[in-house]
Simulated assay, not measured.
Amino acid sequence: MAWFKREIKGIITTTEEKKEAPDGIWNKCPNCKKPLHYSEQVENQYVCHYCGFHIRIGSKEYFSILFDDNQFTELFGDLVSGDPLEFTDTKKYTDRLTETKRKTGLKDAIRSATGKMNGQDLVIACMDFNFIGGSMGSVVGEKIARSIDYSIANKIPFLMISKSGGARMMEAAFSLMQMAKTSAKLALLAQAKVPYISLLTDPTTGGVTASYAMLGDINIAEPGALIGFAGPRVIKETIKKDLPKGFQTAEFVQEHGFLDFIVDRREMKEKLASFLKMLAVPAPAPAPPVG
């Protein structure tokens, strides 16, 4: 039965001959579920052009968006986590670190770099959620501390981009100590009158929210970002009350006074550049000539 085999020229006869799109070319918007082409995502700075949802991105993407021509110098790139507690749960912490480094190509949950943004010098420390949930361990705290020292020494503004599930449980008290260390370093940055802008992205939670993420001269967030300390379930069980609609979204947090601005990622570079100009300390006027 030739008609049943579709032998007409030009008609595909088997599924083996069909060409599938390579992985990573297309994906769905997590919010509206509409298909997005990768090139369109890059062009639109990883914001869905259908619904405006801000897709989670990491340090590589933020650096390409904010630094002029994606030109920057990475700082303290050789820092890696140790295992001071010899932590073991379902697997050794050292094995978890090795596996995560291989999968992500990152050395820890943060990268720091310096470069120019709209011609202005800037230091950026950006967290990566793909590295053990963007958890804050000793390396995260140390990189932030050293980045702040670099900003102070060179009088360069500091931008912190937070994206984290909180403290890294595998480092216990060593992780919690980073809250105090980074906060103390930010106090020194303020004394030096070097501007600090904190950008909170989805999600920013736990000890990160309770320390450096909320200590900016200007605190800003991306639309719809989850921002909070404990999770909604824990809070509900603690206070024994239903939580308001939209609780812990950037919009709710701003309405209650914890954020200065919510900025669309597509406008982020221009907004940050304007903030830095406002915060810049004017150079002292030259002394009048003697005589």
Rank of each mutant, 00 (worst) to 15 (best):
G82A: 11
T90G: 10
I110V: 10
P157F: 02
E99M: 10
P232T: 08
P289S: 07
K91Q: 14
I132F: 06
F258V: 06
E237Q: 15
K193F: 03
M177F: 11
P232E: 10
R96Y: 13
L85F: 14
T98A: 15
Q248D: 08
F129E: 06
K19N: 03
C29E: 05
I65N: 06
E255S: 10
I144K: 00
E86F: 14
L189Y: 15
K92E: 02
K241C: 01
G216P: 00
K19T: 11
V253A: 02
Y93S: 02
H256E: 03
S211C: 05
P288H: 04
L226H: 09
G134H: 10
M160V: 01
E61W: 05
Y212H: 11
G166I: 06
Y196K: 06
T205A: 11
G257D: 02
F258S: 11
I132L: 13
R111S: 11
G82Q: 13
T73S: 11
L215V: 02
V290R: 11
D202V: 01
F275A: 09
K271N: 13
G165N: 14
A187R: 14
L106P: 01
A287W: 04
E20Q: 07
D69T: 00
N70V: 05
Q71P: 01
G291F: 10
Y46K: 04
K101D: 09
A250I: 00
D264C: 00
E270H: 13
N44S: 02
Y62W: 15
S198Y: 06
I57G: 07
A113E: 03
E20I: 01
P157I: 00
K241M: 10
E16I: 10
E270G: 11
G291R: 07
T14R: 14
S81T: 08
R265F: 06
S211G: 07
I156Y: 01
H37Y: 15
D78Q: 06
P284D: 04
M169L: 11
E43G: 07
F76P: 04
F76G: 04
Y50P: 00
V47I: 12
Y50L: 04
A109T: 08
C48E: 04
S151L: 07
L215I: 05
K241Y: 06
G52T: 10
N118I: 00
T98G: 14
I161V: 12
V140D: 11
K19W: 02
K9H: 13
G137E: 05
L243A: 04
G77S: 15
M278D: 12
A145I: 03
L243W: 06
A273I: 06
I235Y: 02
L75V: 07
G133E: 13
I218Q: 03
S274Y: 09
S198E: 01
L106A: 03
L97C: 02
